[in-house]
Design a binder for these strands. Structure first.
Lengths: 179, 179
DNA sequence: AGCAACCATTCATCTAGATTAACAAATGAC
DNA sequence: GTCATTTGTTAATCTAGATGAATGGTTGCT
């Protein structure tokens, strides 16, 4: 048994829900610390900075788990907003489901794999943000998430990459001309 | 028992070694995927980009574990260099010590906490890189790692922050004047 | 259908931080 | 100690990408 959905559902704590495109699941500042497993659809998590600008932290499509790990680990108010980019089917887990002390051995193992995978993705993201140009980051994004561009507006990809929509548009124009 | 050193040493697979300041523990491109627990001293991990520029990914002082999680998770050649910034006492673990399948329950739990903590730190780092100015990142660094500035050359802090040493010097000048 | 909101593109301008360079201070090797 | 290397600082330019604004294309609401 290595299906995430099965493993997480072992204790039947997850609540199955449908969420409409545009609905908000978590608001920064609130105390609600839940995790969302995406059975179908697409979510995003993001911050809003002091100037009111959105910065997308991650996208989560089918089979992904999205949560504000930082707030949960340090027991702080949420820093991330989470909302639906498509009508989605979710399983919602509350904090206690992920309390390491409470987990069974298969859950612990699955959890360790999930975290390791996530850490690996973040390691790459940090390195890209520090060392690569906007164009390189865009090309890396296309390679890593080839299906997302069809489902996500340009401006959100720009937000994920850490550039403005205008800059991304210019980059795309440059790449199109080149080929 | 929640001391990392004890937990990790349960199976006696860790090798205790002393490493001199300046010595290299891991080279990007090599296959050696080990983890280093710092008993004493200070390590760093970093990449070198296509233009030959170094980018520090993390510092690890007493009690920290440093490793190239991305390469290990995806079973690739190392992407990070790891070396000593001070004479250090280390415990070196090889890959198999962290194979999730092999771990005992207390090791699994410790591992989950370690990864969650690391993920949380990386989440914050990504958000800072996307949304904060160089000066804000520097101030956040000082708050988060108040002891490191005394042990690490300025230029390495700049590298960690993703700016040039000149830019950091200017920021420091500006902050000093202000206060 | 008709209107409003949102979205992507293009262009002109601006700015944070990179680059280059010169110099002083600290560190280390012998 | 002396000399060489590395480090931090300051200042003059340069540039990737931000900002602001105008335009046309989509999407969605009623």
């Amino acid at each position: 048994m290595d299906n995430l959905e099965e493993i997480l559902s072992l204790d039947n704590n997850g609540k199955h829900v449908n969420a409409a495109k545009g609905s908000t699941l978590q608001t920064a500042g609130a105390q609600s610390n839940r995790a969302f497993y995406v059975k179908k659809g697409l979510l995003r998590s993001y911050t809003i900075d002091s100037k009111g600008k959105e910065h997308i932290f991650m996208f989560a499509s089918e089979g992904w788990l999205i949560a504000d790990i930082e707030s949960q680990e340090f027991e702080q108010a949420a820093e991330l907003f989470i909302d639906c980019l498509e009508n989605s089917e979710l399983i919602i887990f509350n904090r206690s489901c992920f309390k390491i002390a409470n987990l069974s051995v298969p859950q612990l193992k699955k959890n360790a794999h999930l975290l390791a995978r996530r850490t690996a993705v973040l390691q790459r993201r940090v390195i890209m943000l520090m060392s690569a140009s906007a164009q390189e980051r865009y090309q890396h994004f296309l390679e890593t998430f080839p299906k997302l561009p069809n489902r996500v507006p340009q401006r959100m990809i720009a937000s994920y990459l850490g550039v403005t929509p205008q800059a991304l548009s210019t980059i795309r124009g440059r790449l199109a001309k080149k080929s």
